[in-house]
């Protein structure tokens, strides 16, 4: 392996172990990226470290949501009738639509990462915009769902009411109630379901809001061309975060909305 000679003519035998970042731009010139942090030896190292760091952060998120998922698992097991009946209060078309919306948002995000990798600035900005739009749409549907819960007195706390579980309303189409009535103590446990519903979807929505704020910032930076010369790490790493938030929802939807959609009359 021949020793390479740097621009100052000094033979640097360490060059073969630590090449300077070697991004070649469209003109075929070597470019030192301004985002190169000097405690990293190569841009490659910086990118992989950043990605690894984001994955470790996502691990903390898995464990954070994990506690809530366990609480859900426990109480669904203990109070299945209450959970089943309460779950049927959730709106499946809205939940399913939200799932599709979030998957679509993730799809656009993935395309955005691709656009950054192949350095298509306009496409990247467009993809980020679509990602944001679908993300906001998700939150809009969620807000509508929360509002409905508020009106039905299903928000845990002082205003929570179990009356529709102990005395289920009659369905005008069938002339019978949709659900069997619950005993008062079991009906009380629907509050735990709704608490977990709000806690888990609320925590999820909180992460989405943070993501959307970051998306605005990233879109603006992308528009300025910061990610079209090979520096894709922020887009890539944000994509990891966004997809993770998507995965959480992929589990929340069936667990919360689809417990028992075929109640026996």
């Amino acid at each position: 392996m021949a020793n390479s000679i740097t621009s100052t003519g000094h033979v640097d035998h360490l060059e073969k172990l630590m090449p300077h970042e070697s991004i070649i731009n469209d003109e075929g010139e070597h470019v030192v990226l301004p985002q190169h942090r000097h405690h990293f030896e190569t841009a490659e190292q910086q990118r992989e470290a950043g990605s690894f760091g984001m994955w470790l952060f996502l691990l903390t998120e898995i464990m954070f949501f994990g506690g809530l998922f366990f609480a859900y698992l426990l109480y669904r097991n203990w109070y299945y009738p209450a959970f089943a009946v309460a779950s049927n209060q959730l709106n499946v078309p809205e939940g399913a639509a939200n799932t599709a919306i979030l998957i679509t948002s993730g799809f656009f995000m993935a395309l955005g990462v691709w656009a950054a990798e192949v350095r298509k600035k306009k496409l990247l900005v467009l993809m980020l915009v679509f990602t944001t739009i679908f993300g906001v749409a998700f939150l809009g549907v969620k807000a509508d769902e929360y509002h409905e819960k508020y009106e039905k007195h299903h928000i845990p706390g002082a205003s929570f009411s179990t009356s529709m579980f102990t005395n289920p309303p009659v369905n005008p189409k069938t002339g019978k109630p949709d659900e069997l009535p619950l005993a008062p103590d079991m009906a009380q446990h629907t509050e735990i379901f709704f608490f977990l519903y709000f806690a888990m979807t609320g925590m999820h929505a909180f992460h989405m809001i943070i993501g959307i704020v970051l998306l605005f910032w990233l879109t603006w930076r992308a528009h300025r061309g910061e990610f079209s010369s090979g520096y894709v790490a922020p887009i890539e790493n944000f994509g990891l975060y966004w997809h993770f938030v998507d995965i959480v929802w992929l589990f929340l939807f069936p667990l919360l909305y689809l417990i028992n959609r075929h109640p026996i009359h």
Binding site: T60, G66, G67, A71, Y79, P156, I192, F195, L196
Partner: peptide, 27 residues
């Protein structure tokens, strides 16, 4: 992170009384 979510649940239990750790509400 598991400590973090636990503390959040304690705070919510105190603030709203949701019942996640409350035996009288099934917790």
């Amino acid at each position: 992170p598991v400590l973090a979510i636990t503390l959040v649940l304690v705070a919510l239990e105190r603030l709203i009384g949701i019942g996640v750790f409350d035996p009288t509400k099934g917790g």
